[in-house]
């Protein structure tokens, strides 16, 4: 029993770390630009597929680079895709919430169709590193431990950037008052571009670790997008701290549900949580209401 609880806690911690990577980017884009980017899931899926293409023999036999190269490629390519998504599409429609909403959904669905067309609909396994080790009676795969470490390193770097550098602070400042940022000479367009790049890099990273866990599939974006959305509402929209807390809360609730009820009910309690927060605490745990006007 003790062993099962320890396993559940460890599993929850590991999966939450990946959820956090995904939720942070989602919340930053909402906070800075007021854009609900429903193609965020497509970006993390792109990260996982890029890794597969670059590293895995079973996808492109002629490309079998070292996993480290694959991880870097996944981060860089998705950061660029994210920037392109902003520059080529979102920038032109962001003033209209409905059009932004629809066009990013369409893009996400189109990306699924594209991947089905290229790679087929089946699940494709990708791996970072084989093997596992024992931790308090639980078996932890090496890739899970690496995912956890990478997640916290990324969060620490981001935190340092936005609280200790003028450049990063300008991003937070823009999310609080765009006019204030302009008055202090901040280039809003640059801030938005940087935000999309950061969100893309984090999504690419998170997407790869989701892929190591459950493989590549053209619909792998759907569930994490829901998780990111719920994490952001629970944590408080626009708050980086809140999105991390929200991601962990969801990770733990999901894991407890799987242990006690069964895998089929995995997503249900978090949806109830979402409804509860929307009704009774719409500002979230670290709520600053809607800092963005």
């Amino acid at each position: 029993m003790i062993g099962a609880i320890a396993t559940a806690i460890i599993q929850a911690t590991l999966v939450s770390a990946v959820y956090a990577l995904i939720a942070i980017g989602f919340t930053m884009i909402f906070g800075v630009a007021g854009v609900l980017n429903l193609a965020h899931g497509a970006l993390l899926m792109a990260g996982a597929y890029v890794y597969g293409i670059v590293v895995m023999r079973n996808i492109v036999p002629s490309m079998t680079y070292h996993p480290a190269v694959g991880v870097i490629a996944g981060i860089v390519v998705v950061a660029i895709l994210s920037l392109l998504l902003y520059e080529l599409l979102v920038r032109w429609v962001e003033d209209n919430v409905v059009i932004t909403f629809l066009s990013t959904v369409i893009l996400a669905v189109a990306s699924t169709e594209f991947l089905v067309w290229i790679f087929g609909g089946q699940n494709i396994r990708i791996s970072l590193i084989e093997g596992q080790f024992a931790l308090a009676n639980a078996r932890v795969a090496y890739y899970e431990a690496i995912g956890f470490a990478v997640s916290w390193i990324a969060i620490a770097l981001l935190w340092f950037y936005v609280t200790q550098t003028d450049d990063g602070r300008s991003i937070l400042a823009t999310s609080m008052s765009e006019r204030g940022a302009q008055l202090t000479g901040v280039n809003i367009r640059m801030v938005r571009a940087k935000t999309w790049i950061i969100a893309g890099a984090l999504a690419g990273l998170g997407g790869m670790f989701l892929g190591f866990d459950s493989g590549l599939s053209p619909l792998m974006w759907l569930n994490p997008l829901a998780v990111a959305f719920i994490a952001v509402v629970v944590g408080g929209i626009g708050s980086i701290k809140g999105s991390v807390a929200g991601a962990y809360l969801i990770g733990f609730i999901e894991q407890i549900t799987v242990e006690l009820i069964g895998n089929g009910f995995r997503g249900m309690p978090t949806l109830i949580l979402l409804v509860g927060f929307l009704l009774f605490m719409p500002q979230g745990l670290f709520g600053r209401e809607f800092a963005h006007e």
């Binding site: 003028d166 300008s170 609080m176 008052s177 006019r179 202090t184 000479g185």
Partner: peptide, 26 residues
Amino acid sequence: LVYCTEDRDLFPYFTVHENLQMGAQF
């Protein structure tokens, strides 16, 4: 050429010091 608006347009969740840091961000 620096403009101090009627609405002030401060950064509400930044501390005093952080608001001042923003003034010098460039």
